[in-house]
Design a protein around this nucleic acid. Sequence first.
RNA 1: GCCGGUGUAGCUCAGUUGGCUAGAGCAGCUGAUUUGUAAUCAGCAGGUCACGGGUUCGAAUCCUGUCACCGGCUCCA
Length: 634
Amino acid sequence: MKIILPDKSQLDLQNGATALDATSAIGKRLAADAVAAKINGMLVDLNHSLDDGDVVEIVTLASPEGLEVLRHSAAHVLADAVMQLYPGARLGIGPAISDGFYYDFQLPRPASEADLPAIEAKMAEIVKNAAPFKRRELGRDEANALFAGQPLKLELIGELPPEDALSVYSNDEFTDLCRGPHIPDTGRLKAFQLLSLAGAYWRGDEKNPMLTRIYGTAFPSGKELEQHLQNLKEAERRDHRLLGRQLDLFHIDEEVGAGLPLWHPKGALVRKIIEDLWREAHLANGYEMVMIPHIASADLWKTSGHWDFYRENMYSPMDIEGQEYIVKPMNCPGHIKIYKSRVRSYRELPIRWAELGTVYRYERSGVLHGLLRVRGFTQDDAHIFCRPDQLEDEIQSVIRFVLFMLKTFGFDQYDVFLSTRPEKSVGSDENWERATGALKASLEKSGLNYGVDPGEGVFYGPKIDLKIRDALGRAWQCTTIQVDFNLPERFDVTYVGEDNQEHRPIMIHRALLGSLERFVGCLIEHYAGAFPLWLAPVQAVILPVADRHMDYAGQVAERLSRESIRVELDYSKESVGKKIRNAEVDKVPYMLVVGDREEDAGTVSVRSYAEGDLGSRPCEELAADLARQVEEKS
RNA sequence: GCCGGUGUAGCUCAGUUGGCUAGAGCAGCUGAUUUGUAAUCAGCAGGUCACGGGUUCGAAUCCUGUCACCGGCUCCA
């Protein structure tokens, strides 16, 4: 028989040959690297038999799919080990995930991270045995009998479409319900490590029992595993909570409250720089600034619908002279009230109102995380009121705007998602179609690649979410652009049209950076705390060699301050070495050493955080150069 | 909120099976040193061992409740 390879070439094989036979026919090297095969586009085991005319692609560990197969198999090995060490454990599910794999168990006795080495050792034994993974297809009854002691598996079997064939995979004594495919034998699992252990609800639903989830990762080689562990360490080093304290940017105080960050002078300064840029950019892009109070009468939230639909995220009302007031969880109702303060003409639209609006939302204690998930935060919010015929243009200009903003902060990779109508929603089909169409058209015109999240829109309209990728390739949800049909309706928002009739505007909610808290947290990790010059709270520190250089150091500081450079003078009685070390630890972009030589020549000796000692330069020249760098945000 | 873990000086951490006045480094203060590209030396000060209750002759250590934090689940800016 003949099979067809991806490069369209044909390969002659004996009848009944398997994918593995095909790999050996192609080459020894490939046979050693192969972990699975794709036959006519279907991912299968290597021992799958081939038919005449099949299109066969060999999957190796070099491909994302091969890696997934490896990790999925690693999850099986983990489950095997746990079943041996914890007899009576019940199996949940064990998939491959983006950086590794996990398996969920219901354990007969609690396990902690201290137990991971023992489980890992058992896994190593299983790997050493190199038992083949054997696939078997079976009927419902047989499957139900086989997993009689595994209620979670029975639940899964019960929910699989009855017409689908079931399959199980076995290695040695261990058998698991699984679609496959798997690596040929456990011995192919060369480099793996268990990472952590955590609770996870069965199937992600908190009404279900809590299972024990064990996370691990696996790679084709020890070298790659080592690299990955190195990356994890690097991420740890960049942790904004750690750097926030080290660089004296912010802290979260137990007595103030969980999820309520306090910004120290340097952190507040970084925020101010961002906020100034933000306001300037918005004014330049056709936005106006508005401001609203932090609390509002409960009536407002009843009209907006938040009282009914957003209650669980809002704080309890406070009593003010017998009237209930609520701390705002969102800015939109306030902005709508400004809109409604007088009659609006179609000629005024679009109206774009922006505010760095601080909101407070109840978040369950377990989800709080540094600056990334807090209970009080400032959204870089704006609401655009526009006519239906303006919707697409407006969305497109928001997209242009957000890409410009993110680029300014050094982000140029994003994942974009379009979320469409969910099951529970308000608004007419026509409106939804129109808005979704407008979002889609804007994305396409902007040339952005995007994914669609069907049914993931907000109840009041579809949205675009943008996740930025940082220096380590991690994704952060910041930007959101949401179309809203609901609030204009609820508040009876109108404009008078050309026809002298009242019409309903469409509202766009959008946050470009998301929240200042999250964005700064993300920036800290992106830059590993070493902000670029224009964002650094202290841009240069002047280090006099001895006390007699203090006057000259002061003159240099003066000169740089005149260029609006944020400069500090290190007047401590430390050695130059120590002063440099302190500045390095603080990640100050420029260290300027001044001693006799500099004083005589009117120069400074420049050391940059990024490049080290750069030699001496005339003070005037440096001042101009730094000013230029700040201006260019380089 | 739930599962597992953690909580000792401003920070990072020691503190044995419950047993002297709870230790160290860094940071801070004082003094000496006036220093040339990542840590000069010496001294001093600093702790309700997260908080409350209990067991014990005796608790940082054992039990228990609360709070906070860490890793996740879920949710989201």
